[in-house]
Design a protein around this nucleic acid. Structure first.
Lengths: 356, 356
DNA sequence: TTGAAAGCGGTACCAG
DNA sequence: CTGGTACCGCTTTCAA
């Protein structure tokens, strides 16, 4: 197998011209090419294991059936990879392939990555981030149909469709779960202001309390951070040396790692989860939430769904707007927002409020 | 900005021919094109924001300066992303770009992904896995220079260079660290046989004991699993209801998640880490090992280095073997193995053996 | 029904 | 020093 067979090789072997090969192999043989030539061509193509050169195709057609996925750091970080998995699912099912480039949070690389992708005729672009965040649309992204997943354009006049999780509802439903179990003193370890998700989840927590007409103690909300040690420290502050009557009966965490820290602190203090204290996570991080001891009740981020939804709107736009010509001006203000609901996953770390 | 400027646009604007543009912009202007034409060309290119069409280039040159990275699941999983990060570092520094495709552990997609990549003229291929593992070389991978990262060809006559971590040394050095702290009864929670890394790390554990002439108790080695709950259960078996004299003084874990489980169990049992029990992790998983309470002493997997080393050998092969023609037969048996050492990271979870 | 030719955007060779 | 031209592999139009 020296080098790949070309259409010309096939043509020679079948004793016809290149054009005939092209027609037949693209299903436009009937009415143009003699039946028996068609057979010879198909036969030859098979024997030579022919497949058209994608580069030549792209050059010719000015499109590639490739979608470029740009990520700030989802490839190198442990989080949110399933957004890309979901996106790839729908792309493949619709005959596209995806290639991903990760810029490791280096904004300077965004533009050049997009340039590279555009130079290779990607038909569309998707930008994916680790964690919900506002981004500045990298220059060049508006030159082809594009979509934002897990992030959004912060500008007054957003240009791009984005799909994000419904964090307020997530925070609310997590809180409601605890409320339904009878908890009335629920502490919140709320991540950090560095992420827009944090205040949104807090909002949900407040909304749930308001709806249930239960006052929230402002001293129960901590902007703690996002890691195990932050959860540990937060829990110690809440629990260590505090009389049972003054302890919160549940601690709701803004992610699963915080919940691990809380659980660790509870164990140190001799408190059982969930008998003495309910602990709630957020994210449903694979192989953390499901394998903790006890397994964490948590609010699952709809990562795969976000990826699927984002890719679906992108491809719809792509295949709908086949007007290619005349699609010059970007339609301002058409940007749409899709919110995907989170999903409550009840496991073992939450239970009825303890009797006092 | 209707559409990208082409070389012809530049030529027109500068009042020269396309060939002149090509020469000048590729640095071969001197001696071929008049100085002042050169200036006009460069000026025009700048004004039109010209950059050559990568697709046309690839078609013409039969190469693309793109390296395809194929992964079994590193994009969607939380692990080992830094291999790709490291690989990308060196690729970029040498003027290549990488695109990654993740097949989510679906072997059937391997071949088609490679086909896609090859069709787009990638100059080389790299296969990356989550966790050390033997793989079957996907068909087509031998058609361009390729390299394996974190995995290896299991065949008697391996075809591809691979770079992997030195797991035996890792297991040995982790054990030595504990031995040096005075521990003589070190239990091992050893992962599962599903990964070739597990027995290798066990081997290192045995080697260290042998070198120190300390017998290993076979009942101290457990093939436990890889997750938090497995670590928890393993530790409970080792510690719960066991008299201090019969307890191991240290537990070495095959990954950090196991160590989290062990720490959790210790906390439940009122044992302090590291005062009563030293706990050692493996992997140095970001935001787990470093943020645990106490922070985990662990053996860091050299992920970035593996990626860098793999990409370096790949590009060396690529740029060395510029003989393109005549490189038809694959040289059998030239496959080389690169082992990258792991790195001991001492934090807070290990300490001197407790006095009895 | 078939094949020749143009063109996608470049590069490189070669005559002028 | 310059511009014309062939070619990379494919699709598509147009004449024969």
């Amino acid at each position: 197998m020296n080098r790949k067979a070309t259409a010309l090789d096939v043509a020679k072997r079948a004793g016809v011209s290149r054009s005939a090969v092209s027609l037949v192999l693209n299903g436009r043989g009937d009415g143009n090419v003699a039946k028996e030539s068609q057979d010879r061509i198909r036969q030859a193509a098979l024997e030579l294991n022919y497949s058209p050169n994608a580069i030549a195709l792209s050059l010719r057609n000015q499109r590639s059936r490739v979608i470029g996925i740009l990520s700030d750091e989802v490839v190198v970080s442990p989080f949110d990879g399933n957004i890309i998995g979901g996106a790839d699912d729908v792309a493949r099912s619709r005959g596209f392939v995806t290639v991903v480039m990760d810029t490791e949070r280096d904004a300077a690389r965004d533009a050049s990555a997009i340039e590279t992708l555009l130079d290779r005729q990607v038909d569309g672009l998707m930008y994916v981030t680790v964690g919900l965040k506002p981004i500045e649309i990298p220059h060049g992204m508006l030159r082809v149909p594009s979509v934002l997943a897990n992030c959004y354009d912060d500008q007054p006049e957003p240009q791009l469709h984005h799909v994000i999780p419904d964090e307020v509802a997530g925070g609310r439903e997590a809180t409601e779960h605890l409320l339904e179990l009878g908890h009335r003193d629920i502490a919140l370890l709320a991540g950090l202001e560095d992420s827009p998700a944090a205040p949104l989840r807090v909002q949900g927590y407040r909304d749930a309390h308001a709806a249930a007409e239960i006052p929230v103690g402002e001293d129960r909300i901590f902007m703690a951070g996002w890691d195990i040690d932050a959860g540990f420290r937060g829990a110690m502050k809440l629990l260590d040396g505090v009389s049972p009557a003054d302890r919160p009966t549940a601690i709701m965490c803004a992610n699963d790692r915080l919940a691990v820290g809380v659980t660790l602190a509870a164990a140190r203090l001799g408190l059982s989860v969930p008998e003495d204290l309910s602990v709630m996570g957020y994210d449903d991080e694979t192989r953390i939430a499901d394998t903790m001891v006890p397994a964490l009740t948590t609010m699952a981020l709809p990562l795969r769904e976000i990826g699927r939804a984002a890719m679906t709107t992108l491809l719809d736009a792509l295949e709908g707007t086949d007007e290619i010509e005349g699609a010059d001006e970007t339609e301002k203000g058409t940007a749409v927002e899709t919110m995907v609901p989170c999903r409550l996953v009840v496991r073992e770390s939450t239970g009825p409020v303890p009797k006092r």
